[in-house]
Structure formats: C-alpha cells, structure tokens
C-alpha cells in the first residue's frame, strides 16, 4: 500500500510573504475532509528543506512542495519537478530538485512524482503579515490545488 500524498510547505512564518508555504499548509489542514484528508494526504511544514526530508518522500503516491516564489509568474506556477544536483553548497537548506537528487542516490530509484507550487511573493519584511498580493495569490493557488489533488493522476495543470 502506498503512503499518502505528501504536501510540504516551507518558509518562515515571521518573514512576510515567506510564510506562504506554512500558511498554505495551515489552510489545507483546515480544509481537509474525510475525502481529501485522513489517510490520503499528509502535510508537513518547516522553515526550510533539509537533507533528512528524503526519508519522508519514500513510496508516496506523489509529493507537492509549496514555497514562496520571489520571482516568476503570478499568481503562482505549478509543474513537475526533476531531480537536479546543485553545484556547490553554501547553505544549510536544500532546494526540492536537489532533495530529489539526493533521494535517487539514497534509494537508488527516482523519487515519486513530485511537483512544485511556487506562489508569487513580494515582501519578506520581518514581522510583516502576508501582503495583499500574496494573499490573493495564495487563494488562487489553493483553488487550483484542491481539485488537482482530488483528481491526481489526470493531466497536471501548469500555470508556469
């Protein structure tokens, strides 16, 4: 039996729009119903992705990473992720693509299908709430994600 779909939202709740990932996770948790939650979806939130997250990814039906995007399309971009090794390491945190590359090395197989939901963010000021633009983008992203999760396995919408 496969493990539930995993949704990982990451960012700092105290850094303005960097809170988009954790805020999205909180919203998904609130909206979970017996159909969408309880056994079919598992949620995780953290400040940043770390190397041991690879052990959370194993045998999932799919994985969705949710992060604030400081550039790119608004209100959000959504698409499949491929494993990619980062050249050199200067930070304690990891990107989702790099995490998938470590997964492949660790388990000897590709990670389950993985997707990145990048919600366009604008303001990362310490102590600031979500900006109005980010709040709007969050709602748009969740409106896309919820039916997508319900229908996973069909065509993946991409707004990149």
């Amino acid at each position: 039996m496969r493990a539930p779909t995993l949704i990982i939202g990451y960012g700092n709740p105290s850094r303005g729009d960097d809170a988009l990932g954790p805020t999205a996770i909180a919203a998904i948790e609130r909206r979970m119903t017996p159909d969408t939650g309880s056994g079919q979806i598992e949620i995780v939130t953290d400040f940043q992705l770390q190397i041991e997250f690879v052990t959370d990814l194993a045998e999932r039906q799919c994985i969705v990473f949710i992060d604030a995007a400081s550039s790119g399309a608004a209100p959000f971009s959504f698409g499949a992720l491929a494993a990619q090794t980062e050249a050199g390491t200067t930070t304690h945190a990891m990107s989702p693509a790099s995490l998938l590359a470590v997964y492949r090395s660790f388990y000897g197989v590709d990670a389950p299908p993985s997707f990145l939901l990048g919600i366009r963010a604008y303001d990362f000021e310490l102590g600031a709430p979500l900006s109005p633009g980010a709040q709007h983008n969050l709602e748009a992203a969740l409106a896309m994600l919820e039916p997508w999760l319900m229908a996973y396995g069909q065509e993946v919408p991409c707004h990149a």
């Binding site: 190397i51 041991e52 090794t85 050249a87 050199g88």
Partner: peptide
C-alpha cells in the same frame, strides 16, 4: 563537490549523515 557526489562515491557516509540527522 556536493552531497549527491558524496552519495554516489561514499554511499555509507551519505546514509550515515541522513540518518543521524
């Protein structure tokens, strides 16, 4: 020169690092 390189060349060390974490 990254963790994937380590995992490929020194898989036991990479595994140790992940599981210690």
């Amino acid at each position: 020169r990254n963790i994937v390189g380590i995992a490929q060349r020194y898989p036991d060390a990479a595994r140790r690092g992940i599981l210690l974490r």
